[in-house]
Design a protein around this nucleic acid. Sequence first.
DNA 1: GATGAATGAGAATTCATTCAT
DNA 2: GATGAATGAATTCTCATTCAT
Lengths: 201, 201, 201, 201
Amino acid sequence: MRADAARNLARILDAARDVFAERGSEASVAEIAARAGVGTATIYRRFPTKEDLLAALFEQAVARLAVDAAEAAEAKDVGRALRGFMQRAAAAHMADRSYCECAETNVKLRPEVQARFDELIGNVDRLLTRAKEAGEVRADVNAFDVPILLMGVAQAGALLEERVPGAWKRYLDIVLDGLRPQAARPLSRRPLTARDLRPRA
Amino acid sequence: MRADAARNLARILDAARDVFAERGSEASVAEIAARAGVGTATIYRRFPTKEDLLAALFEQAVARLAVDAAEAAEAKDVGRALRGFMQRAAAAHMADRSYCECAETNVKLRPEVQARFDELIGNVDRLLTRAKEAGEVRADVNAFDVPILLMGVAQAGALLEERVPGAWKRYLDIVLDGLRPQAARPLSRRPLTARDLRPRA
Amino acid sequence: MRADAARNLARILDAARDVFAERGSEASVAEIAARAGVGTATIYRRFPTKEDLLAALFEQAVARLAVDAAEAAEAKDVGRALRGFMQRAAAAHMADRSYCECAETNVKLRPEVQARFDELIGNVDRLLTRAKEAGEVRADVNAFDVPILLMGVAQAGALLEERVPGAWKRYLDIVLDGLRPQAARPLSRRPLTARDLRPRA
Amino acid sequence: MRADAARNLARILDAARDVFAERGSEASVAEIAARAGVGTATIYRRFPTKEDLLAALFEQAVARLAVDAAEAAEAKDVGRALRGFMQRAAAAHMADRSYCECAETNVKLRPEVQARFDELIGNVDRLLTRAKEAGEVRADVNAFDVPILLMGVAQAGALLEERVPGAWKRYLDIVLDGLRPQAARPLSRRPLTARDLRPRA
DNA sequence: GATGAATGAGAATTCATTCAT
DNA sequence: GATGAATGAATTCTCATTCAT
């Protein structure tokens, strides 16, 4: 039954992704089970807690961002690559209502999520370093700023998405301009460090 | 009994403001009633629905922003006034967990809220127009962009507030720099119009 | 609605007493609600937790024992009074399947239950002291031994009750004989003290 | 495969013994399977029902008591032997949280358990007869009383075990004194007979 | 007019048992 | 013969809203 089990797991993850994306993280496990065509207990076999399920999906999402950032960091035109990365990332945030909700909760403190997040930060750091060297990005921002700003763009965009689909792109543009050196004024607050985002820090 | 009733209403609104600010819009009506020292039914007499209560508070909050924007629009140093307004507004967003939640729901579509929002937009428009004339703000943004951007800053800041209090100020700085003409690139999306935010539009 | 509420509370307590007595403490709140003719939420309004409900009933039961012990302590024939008290107490244990279950759990650690238990112990102590003076009870037992022994008799009796109703009386007789001085051998363990039964002791 | 199957059965029984002893009869089959290193279905192949598994273990436990009683019945110092048997038996009850729970349910009515129980009763009867002849035990008790009293001691002891380990020994002492002739008063209930404990009797 | 008691609908989670591989 | 995946039924608890006093 390895095959069937794997298929069921995939159906659960797919269903959960869809349902959480549509309804947010408060969607009920029953709805996911119904969409996946399994009983709720089947979900609880794989994921002892609803939060575990959310964490698994969130981890995957962060991992996808990390991969994308890694590719962007290698691109020839680094300014273009940075913008492309942030556009794709923001679009991914927008497509999943639960993404930002997970980032708000302690889901983000789970070690497996932290590991992916560290990868993401590392890759973004490489991307950003090159972008600074190319004069595309102001010197006083760091990799931690990027996911924060993306979250803000996505949340603001979510307010409008139903009525003005894609409006978030406008706000991403403004934020990207804010990252350019040309308009930079001194920032009133220090950049974040890894310590700031660690549990109990 | 007019006096008692009015006092009760005030206590309800105060309690609801506190509770929703602390716990978010999912706080229970019972908790608000307890904090206000009234029965739950007393709340339901004034506000047929929990959402009606949220809307009343949201309306007040938007009204306060409108007043602040009006004052800012008259200030001598318009650049400084804009930044000051946005800092106070973002701080207000941060202080009330329910604020952004209301903006996400259809609370924002209620006519009384719309009226306040129109005032806010009008005042921000005056502020922004002067700021553009002073060369402080790029020409391609409009008043609708401001509350959107504030919401994004506040939501991003909320992610960090517990661990890095005040971090939102850093992100507001970046957004403010993004609004300056110096780094402006063409925006990929048109600005919003009043029609975009009307019900059924 | 004071009257109705009080009536409902009484019905809840009566129903809970019956259901827990019959089915034990694992009976479902739903069954109690059904028997009481109320919704489950009504029960949760009065008793935030199922355990709170159990504790309230347990407290009442201990209180009844305490009253009975107080009366017994005043009786003329102290030996007869002791036996009478223990018979009635054991009968009460037998009539309520949840009684011993509560004594096993941390329900017994609740302060309100502790207070009743302290009363019980105090009254039993008076009863026992007089019984010792009258030569009816061995000197090396104390008041804490009494509820323990009663529990044992009741639990043993419960095994038989369905098939041999009242068999517990036989075992109570044997225990009562064990408390008499005539057959006393040194006890291998020290008596309990109040400290032993306190939380964290 | 005979060997593997036998090994699995042994592992299941060992694991079940441990788990039920620690957690009581409400421990989940899944936990036992995990501890045994087998799948749950393997358990269900051997034991169609969780209760069948409990019964098998209970049968073994009763059998061990029967053996111990047989040895005690042959001992030179019969009073000492009786006390020793009851101490060991009570200790065994204490060490297995599920033991008394099984005795409470209809597990005890299964024929295989009955057979073991009959052995136990027979051996205890021999032990008791000799003890009566030696003047160590009152004449009006019989073998059926012994397991009942042990159960009572164990259940009472269980209430205290966590806080006052070994306290049960004190209560066993009292019960043993109650079995001595010196303090015997007439018992208010007749002794049990084999018929009382038969199914449907 | 105010109160707070009552409730129905639903949420997460658990577990003995069955079934497909 | 063994496995572990699947599940239905049950359980505790929550909350917005209505209703009787």
